[in-house]
């Protein structure tokens, strides 16, 4: 009998590729590196809070969480980590605007399909490592937002949501991040998957808040090769997918300038992410989503160790 989750997953991810990947974990920067001085006390004090594990003492850690017994035994200073200190809350926001439906001649799949594959992979990794996760699509704001959890039912429900079409007329990140700000928990990771054809100023103020909440933003930018390279040969009549506006142009004439603008936008986004303690990943739809993601996560893991 086929596992239901596996059946859904296989719609988005090639099981062979998936199985070939090493065990990957998604870890939040703030949780793993612990470089922030003075972690907030867990609001969940008391014996109901489960002791999770020990780790070595690092300067800045509170003396209260030092495990003196372990010190007596091992002569090593170690701190106790509790559940809420180790649990990752991941919020995945997926752009469902019509522009994500675009597939150029060199792409393996549309950006939406690619993004769904990425989302599915992320959900799978998060589910495997028993972290809490939430996924919602973004159009006029967050759609069908559900608080993070780690249950399989939730996992399956989120996967089903990926069957939606990318037909929203817009992707209002401002509204979505405002809504998220009201519900987001500290030390979470916010994964935004989109082509980010929007003004970067929209993200600036929200990223401040996320940083305040010790949340890590991760921008996964999905683009079609033709959007990156603009490799049209002949004069072309283009029509905007979302607005329907048309434009006739000569690719040779404007290619260079177009690429400069695109690169500036991508660099701006990456810069924005880094300055706010986050990360930026540019993926092209002519590459394998899982392999690309896998390479990124492996690199990330090494970085955090």
């Amino acid at each position: 009998m086929v596992n239901r989750s596996e059946a859904i997953i296989s719609e988005f991810l090639d099981p062979e590729i998936l199985s070939a990947l090493p065990s990957l974990e998604i870890q939040a920067r703030y949780l793993v590196s612990g470089f922030l001085a003075g972690l907030h006390q867990s609001p969940y004090r008391g014996s109901s809070v489960e002791f999770k594990e020990l780790r070595d003492y690092q300067p800045g850690d509170s003396l209260r969480i030092i495990d003196w017994k372990a010190y007596g035994r091992t002569d090593r200073l170690q701190v106790k980590l509790r559940d809420e200190q180790t649990n990752l809350n991941a919020y995945i926001l997926l752009d469902r605007s019509a522009s994500m439906n675009f597939a150029g001649p060199e792409a393996n799949m549309s950006k939406w399909r690619y993004a769904c594959s990425l989302t599915a992979a992320l959900l799978l990794f998060l589910h495997r490592q028993n972290d809490a996760f939430s996924m919602s699509t973004v159009s006029n704001g967050l759609e069908d937002f559900i608080r993070p959890g780690s249950k399989t039912v939730l996992f399956q429900r989120f996967l089903k949501q990926l069957h939606h079409e990318a037909d929203a007329t817009q992707c209002d990140w401002n509204m979505a991040l405002e809504e998220l700000a009201n519900v987001i928990q500290q030390r979470s990771i916010v994964v935004m998957i989109s082509d980010f054809y929007t003004d970067l100023e929209v993200f600036r103020k929200h990223l401040d808040h996320l940083r305040f909440m010790k949340c890590e933003p991760l921008f996964i930018q999905v683009m079609d090769p033709i959007e990156c390279d603009f490799n049209y040969d002949d004069p072309v009549l283009l029509q905007d997918i979302e607005t329907g506006e048309r434009l006739t142009l000569s690719p040779d004439l404007i290619r260079k300038h177009y690429k400069e603008r695109i690169e500036a936008h991508i660099n701006g986004l990456a810069d924005l992410a880094k300055r706010n303690g986050g990360d930026h990943l540019l993926l092209r739809t002519d590459s394998s989503p899982i392999k690309a993601l896998g390479s990124y996560l492996a690199l990330r893991s090494r970085r955090f160790k």
Partner: peptide
């Protein structure tokens, strides 16, 4: 014949 394109804002 028009071709769909998502990133006209940059053009």
């Amino acid at each position: 014949v028009p071709q769909a394109y998502p990133a006209l804002i940059f053009l």
